[in-house]
Design a protein around this nucleic acid. Structure first.
Lengths: 218, 218
DNA sequence: CTTGCTACTCACCGCTCGGTGACAGATTGG
DNA sequence: CCAATCTGTCACCGAGCGGTGAGTAGCAAG
């Protein structure tokens, strides 16, 4: 029986076609990609060593070897995250002249709204951030907020907020609103009773967002 | 041995005061309380049959029997949730005359902010809502939003939003902002770089919230 | 070829999970 | 009294988890 098993086992493995060439760099990349894909598509709930290894098509042992476990892998995702802003959000003013701080914030808000809507990985991370306080998620959170703050700073240029407005607090509320809106919509196509399914719904949301920004910054 | 066991077991249980002797109603309540406590304190991540049974100090079989499993239990929590608004948020105007829609929304926003800050269970549920789309969480979500909408409607009275403002969308953004702000603060004592630790931080946040509301509604 | 290193796989561990069937003790009704 | 019923307990299942030690296949240098 055991012999028959061994005799059968070898031909069973050959038809797998994909001969995974011994290439450490490629394997590392495959693991990282699988992790990001899995997190983006399935969320943080079922995110684990076994699932990532399965997604990458390799043994989980390699994740321990190359990344030192899940923590290291998450850290690697965080590092990648630094490029998010660069990839996803334009760094120039789109040909507009931003005359006032209000112009700037309106543009930033709308850009951020669209960017977050378009990036499932980022949404999952934001949801993770408000659901757990582990070391892992804190790293991700930090990388994210740092990248975002840098982007805003770059865009801000020499514009300064109007006097008498606590811009840091107001901006935090605006970005908080955007994040919750997008997260809620991604999960249930609505937010606080406001439908967010089709493009028209989103136009209304964007219009109200502008309205809010302008209400504060003029 | 069995006798000795029994002799020891009783004094061990007595300090719990509650003599848990064959009382279905009490057990059901204990399970429900344990479930709410667990969800509020530990979050939805480790929320499961075993954990609830452990917290309630009974066998998980009883959860299946009395609630039909976790789903039924969550549904029971949802039913309880309907009373949240009644318990937590005042239903009158606090002796103020709300002359304008702006007055109303400012007051609602601040009340909601404080209520959410004070209620860990509600926060966990909101975090759950944006993290998962299971049947369970949809039920909770629905119960919550219904209660909230009813409260707002009741408070609104005959006040109507100013013309030219999409109140539904604007209000959704305001409530979204509050929810994300509070959730983020509960987990990391800050939101988008804005520190939210002590009372003074929160005062600044509340001031900015007012500012935003007034910016839109005057 | 042999030796040694590297990339990779496998089998197994202990644990917790959700879920179920069988059973024990108290209570009640006939 | 017995029998049925209700409340609660326990042991057990298969599956999946994170984690590890031991071993295997490819490759390059001697």
């Amino acid at each position: 029986m055991a012999v028959a098993n061994a005799a059968v086992k070898i031909p069973l493995e050959t038809p797998v076609a994909e001969k995974r060439v011994r290439n450490r760099a490629a394997t590392e990349q495959a693991i990282l990609d699988a992790a990001k894909r899995l997190l983006a598509e399935e969320g943080f709930q079922n995110f684990g060593i076994n699932a990532v290894a399965r997604g990458a098509g390799c043994d989980k042992q390699l994740i321990y070897r190359y990344y030192g476990g899940l923590n290291g892998l998450v850290e690697a995702i965080g590092t990648d995250l630094g490029d998010w802003v660069k990839d996803r959000i334009p760094d120039d003013t789109g040909g507009m002249f931003l005359l006032t701080y209000g112009d700037l914030m309106e543009r930033l808000a709308l850009l951020f709204l669209d960017a977050l809507r378009a990036d499932p990985l980022m949404r999952r991370i934001v949801a993770w951030e408000v659901s757990e306080n582990s070391e892992q998620v804190r790293r991700l959170s930090e990388a994210r907020s740092k990248a975002l703050a840098g982007w805003i700073e770059r865009m801000r240029g020499s514009l300064t907020p109007p006097k008498g407005v606590d811009a840091q607090a107001v901006n935090a509320m605006i970005f908080a609103a955007i994040q919750h809106l997008v997260l809620s919509a991604a999960v249930s196509d609505q937010c606080a009773g406001l439908p967010l399914k089709n493009a028209k719904d989103w136009e209304k949301a964007a219009a109200s967002l502008k309205r809010i920004v302008r209400g504060v910054y003029g």
